[in-house]
Write a protein that binds this DNA or RNA. Sequence first.
DNA 1: ACTTTTTTCCATCAATTGATGGAAACACAT
DNA 2: ATGTGTTTCCATCAATTGATGGAAAAAAGT
Lengths: 214, 214
Amino acid sequence: MSSRLEKARQDPGSMKAKILASARKIFGEYGYNDTTTRMIAKDVGIDISTLYYHWGEKQDLYEAVVIEIGEEIQDQLNDIERKVSGRSLTTRLEIALDMMCDYLFAHPEVSNLFLFGYFNKTRHGVALDNKMSEYIANIAVAMDLAQNKKKVSIQAKARILAVWNTVLNFISGESFFRPMLATSHVNYMKVVKETLKFILVPAFTSEKEKLKIE
Amino acid sequence: MSSRLEKARQDPGSMKAKILASARKIFGEYGYNDTTTRMIAKDVGIDISTLYYHWGEKQDLYEAVVIEIGEEIQDQLNDIERKVSGRSLTTRLEIALDMMCDYLFAHPEVSNLFLFGYFNKTRHGVALDNKMSEYIANIAVAMDLAQNKKKVSIQAKARILAVWNTVLNFISGESFFRPMLATSHVNYMKVVKETLKFILVPAFTSEKEKLKIE
DNA sequence: ACTTTTTTCCATCAATTGATGGAAACACAT
DNA sequence: ATGTGTTTCCATCAATTGATGGAAAAAAGT
């Protein structure tokens, strides 16, 4: 299935790639179980047997989507790490939150698929679990919560998870939260960024001082 | 359907009530679409037509579950408000987080159903949306983020949402997060509480000082 | 003991869904 | 043009699922 994904990447105009793109969109909107192969096929404009011809089982197609997104996240984290290196902790946090928000708001299916993966009891092949631990370790080091990728305390991990989730929730929950806030999409993005900084920056910057004591 | 719920409440030993209890469990575990009426019936130990005899459509049963949980949350918030009144902001936050965590860890299906409701594009009748705005306004006042229930700023609302989501995520995501933290259930609960306080208390207590300036 | 009402289960339906076989349509080299 | 391999679609299957009709069983009323 990894080779299938590679082929789709090699030729973005190929039917394989088109199907993958639609699959990503639909899976991201409805989750694995609520997405039917017919929905994806209709979105591409093909018969479902054509979809099966190119991708085989529904599961394989889903896994390809998950893998693709996993790599995208990794790229994004690398980008962020490059941009924030050398800055102060507060600035690092602010830039990281801004960049992550921009990316996720532009690709809302990503946060949806993450959250679907978290809370679904019924597992569908490869989840994002695998890479998750790695991401967390990297972020912990980048945010000065750990000196060594190998040795990240449980507290540090939990804090990263809290941050990560808070971001994902605001993106995925927009259709639910925005009516409550009675505001536009553009202003919602602004408020989300503000709120994230408001909540997260104090915690981690005052922790910096606590660390000196320890 | 409200009268149906009332009947179930009147006699907790009734078949109606047993079905409701099982429905709450199963819906909370798998979400609306991934729960079949057969799963619930099997959990109760009855035939599915018995279930339909008592509750009618699947949707009605689901709505009854949502209503029940909504009322439970309201009670819980009232409890909290009673206990924290008069305390300092920091203490209020700490007590509120502790109590909410205790309740949600004891009833994990509650946070699951909340999150399912947030992110599902396919709506299933009554969601928890309605009460949500009310809850937020109440919490905002209780946490000194607003003077008046009627006038809660968009920033205040967003902050409450962030806190609320962070809590829900840790509860619902336990099966996903705990392996990453490689710890026991009991210790997970402890770490979650610590993490929530770590992240949330500084944000809101330093805001308190900012407010004096404004 | 008898009706009458309520409750439970068996059998079944129609719609949806993941998946496949096989025929047609297409592409392309010779 | 002919043959070969690829791609696409139509028809269909088996399993699942929400839902119902009707008969049996249980409870309640007289």
